[in-house]
Design a protein around this nucleic acid. Sequence first.
RNA 1: GCACCGAUGGUCUAGUGGCUAUGACUUUAGCCUUCCAAGCUAAUAACUCGGGUUCAAAUCCCGAUCGGUGCACCA
Length: 582
Amino acid sequence: MADKYEQVIELAKRRGFLWNSFELYGGTAGFYDYGPLGAMLKRRVENIWRDIFVINEEYYEIEAPTIGIEDIFIASGHVGGFSDPLTECQKCNEAFRADHLVGDVVDNPDTLSADDLTEVIGKNNIKCPECGGKLGNVYEFNLMFKTSIGPGGKRAGYLRPETAQGMFVDFPRLLKFYRDRLPFGATQIGKAYRNEISPRQGVIRLREFTQAEAEIFIDPRDKTHPKFGEISDIILVLYSQEGQERGSSEKMSIGDAVQNGIIAHQFLGYCLARTYQFLIRVGVLPEKLRFRQHMKDEMAHYAADCWDAEIQSDRFGWVEVVGIADRTDYDLKAHAKQSETELNVYVSYDKPIKVERFAVKPNMGVLGPLFKGKAGKIANALKLLKSEDLLGDTIEVVVEGEVIQVDKEAVSFENISEEVHGETIIPHVIEPSFGIDRITYSLLEHSYFEEEAKAEEGEEEEKRIVLRLPPEVAPVQAAVLPLLTREELIDPANKIVKALRKAGILVAFDDSGTIGRRYRRNDEIGTPYSITVDYQTIEDGTVTIRDRDSMKQVRASMDGIEENIYDMIYRGKSFDEAGRKV
RNA sequence: GCACCGAUGGUCUAGUGGCUAUGACUUUAGCCUUCCAAGCUAAUAACUCGGGUUCAAAUCCCGAUCGGUGCACCA
């Protein structure tokens, strides 16, 4: 019996949603093409994401290159951390991390090259820990695709393994764009690349995939969200750290979860809520959606809290489709260090604060002639002293390991009272990161239904395949069907097609075969509405509109049909309001 | 990357060391047809790729690729 994955993939392949890439040449694992319908479906999913995160949250979208320079990925840790030296046992074929195996005999296995590691293993006669067999040569496996920039191949470039770094690297420009105020966010929808060792599971694990990410820079001292009230009543299925130890998830409102400390703070809770709304809107079934908290040992060391949205699929079980993390100041600090540039924000206080400060003033007129070239360093050391260090007649400072005595006449000091207007902080980053391909596949699976259609007496039951996609994401939004292949019905049908296209609705005209066959063809690709032109149309200018899911029909005027359909797709108008019941 | 299994029109499938490689559905053209895939006529369309054995290979052997499963890797 074919499982649902097989059924969905078969349909997706046949009707032009998903194709194996490079099929003409035999195909390559980890790459998929979106066919005509798939590309449109994916685009509509992305546009709903934009509606929520770009338009409604005002996290503007940027577009950075898909190739990044080496510095970026040194800072992000991908050059070091995303690559593993592997060695395989020649006898049992188990693969091992070479750096782990030599950990007992050398101090710094991380710094050794693959050749060094091979040598160390050979010299120390290290054998396969499983079966004692001989180990093969060590090779580096980095999950990043490497390339070179410009001629000569001197400058390394990498295909980005995530879109996030583009936003981090643009931080100073973004900060100016948002006029130096927190919080602000930037988003990016684009391709990312990982050279997976052995990608399987079809579209679930790809070597080239689409991410939609937001990087939201917030004040680390204030992780509340001004719009938290709008979403605090939303109930989510939460699979918390405790829940995972217990082995059960629980339904809870976001307000309660933040209150109880299950979700670290309001801002993260807010992102979970918007993620939930997004996923439901594109067609994920709520009962097959949960939010799973990362376990302590699973979370990156810098992360404050991290939740994955997981979707249940028939074959693969719970699949991570979104990661929502509080990455703290890790990324900005890493890039600040690598680029030797300050990446921070000056935050003004509501009111200036009066601060009492003890200040040492070296008298350079005395120190200069006395100490010549060392005078500057000595002065700096003096400035760091506290009031109790200055009590004696001579004052001691240590400069470059040398104890230097300075006469107290050369130093004056006082208590200064001054106003401080603000301070410099490094923002924390909240990062919701979406795997668009996994989401697109999931909603195909969740909207795929095979129904037994009603059969007339004496007839066999037949199968109806229908994609119950939300009208907003359905690639083809309306079908226009003349009941019969006759000139007098085709003419008005063409007029309707024109009007719908003018309203921006993607419409398919189909006059081949029986009407039933055409309905079924459209059910299978999720076309939500079919408009049928019959002889009554000629008489009174009305057509029937058929609803994909209920197969019910209403009769509505041909005049203004484009608004009628548009309102049902985008403005929540119900099908019953579309016309008179038939 | 390792082990095992598999690969025939768009989809599902029959089949054999030897004539022009089945069949169904789909699709296309035409006919018919007044609302839920099944009428009539016709057409299009396939043995994953490379090498070997053989007079002859889609069939047997080897390798590659892709897919599935387990291991490993990975989020």
